[in-house]
Simulated assay, not measured.
Amino acid sequence: MGQRQLRRAKKSLQIPYFISLTETERKMVAENYTSVTEFILAGLSEQPELQLPLFLLFLGIYMATVVGNLGMITLIGLSAHLHTPMYYFLSSLSFIDLCHSTVITPKMLVNFVTEKNIISYSECMAQLYFFSIFAIAECHMLATMAYDRYVAICRPLLYNVIMSYHLCFRLTVGVYILGIIGSTIHTSFMLRLSLCKTNVINHYFCDLLPLLELSCSSTYINELLVLILSAFNILTPVLTIFASYIFIIASILRIRSTEGRCKAFRTCSSHISAVAVFFGSAAFMYLQPSSVSSMDQGKVSSVFYTTVVPMLISS
């Protein structure tokens, strides 16, 4: 078929005289616009000699994540003296991290030991949906924990009044609502696209940006949504955390006792390290223009917020 006929065939998809096409033209149009039903995940590395070492590395990380976070949730649940807002938020973060890691890591481990890393379209969309929920929820839970630390250190006498059970519950519910709303928007607009360029996803899981690279239709709205929602879900928590720690550090420096200052810094240090790794790697992945970002570098960056941070939280 000539180029002129092919252009006519493509254009006819949007106008009534599609029925006037010849049978050959119809078949070619159908083949050209058929979406794939399963994908092949490219994985972290294509070098065969690295598959086993990477499998053992991430198996160890995942086991530490599961044991650590389950242990944290169980310990906080069983210990009455730990039923405080700080530990309530910590157990919620442990649950988010456990789910976040479980959505990604088991499939990645299977892919290290199988010859073809296949995932169906429905499984891919489900993975994208639940990954987005827990990733967004983690962003806002880290900001909530920073606010809790601000009240505890800067308003110690009013801590129990401000951080009441009802406020803690509402903040936690709000974190999950933001995650569900953001994930539903991303996944809904992804389902509207025709993914037919290739069936190879240049990543180790179904993430937004590598899936957009497979689209035959316009991704302008999707890319705009990724930028807007990522800016909201990353920059808003980061600014909240930054403002909280400015007040926290100012308050700690006013403590006369060296032991008191050290104790206050130790309380915040693990949270600060998790925040820096999580938001730094997430911003590198999602807040760069598509023309600048490299998916190979993005895969390495995403390892930190999908597997490393959930393990750090539990340690």
Rank of each mutant, 00 (worst) to 15 (best):
F169T: 13
S230W: 05
C216R: 12
L191W: 08
S215Y: 10
L178H: 01
I252D: 09
T172R: 06
R149V: 02
R149P: 02
Y220M: 11
L158A: 15
S194C: 07
T258A: 15
Y176T: 02
N202S: 12
N160W: 05
G174V: 04
V151K: 02
R266S: 09
L235A: 14
G260H: 07
K197M: 06
L193C: 04
S188C: 05
F169V: 14
H186F: 14
N222A: 09
N233M: 02
T184A: 15
N222P: 12
R149M: 02
L208C: 10
M163Y: 07
L227C: 10
E223G: 10
I241K: 14
L225T: 08
I248C: 13
C196K: 11
Y220T: 15
L211D: 13
L239D: 01
N160Y: 08
T198H: 13
P156C: 12
L253A: 06
S194M: 03
G182S: 00
I228M: 10
V200F: 08
F242S: 13
F265H: 06
R266Q: 10
G260Y: 02
I180E: 05
I248S: 12
G182R: 03
C206R: 04
L208P: 09
C154G: 01
C154N: 05
L195R: 02
N233V: 00
H166N: 11
H203P: 00
H186E: 08
L193E: 15
L229H: 11
R256M: 09
L227G: 03
N233E: 11
I249P: 07
V226A: 13
V151I: 15
H186G: 01
R254D: 07
K197D: 11
V173W: 02
R261Y: 03
R155C: 10
V175I: 14
C196I: 01
L239R: 00
S217L: 11
L253G: 02
L229I: 15
L214D: 14
C168D: 14
M190P: 00
K197P: 07
R155Q: 12
I221C: 13
N233H: 13
F232G: 09
S188W: 02
S244L: 08
I241C: 12
Y176P: 01
C154Q: 00
E213A: 15
L253D: 08
S217R: 11
Y204K: 06
A250G: 12
I234L: 14
L214G: 13
E223C: 02
G260M: 04
I177K: 00
P237Y: 05
P237S: 06
A264K: 01
S230K: 08
I248T: 07
L212C: 15
Y150V: 03
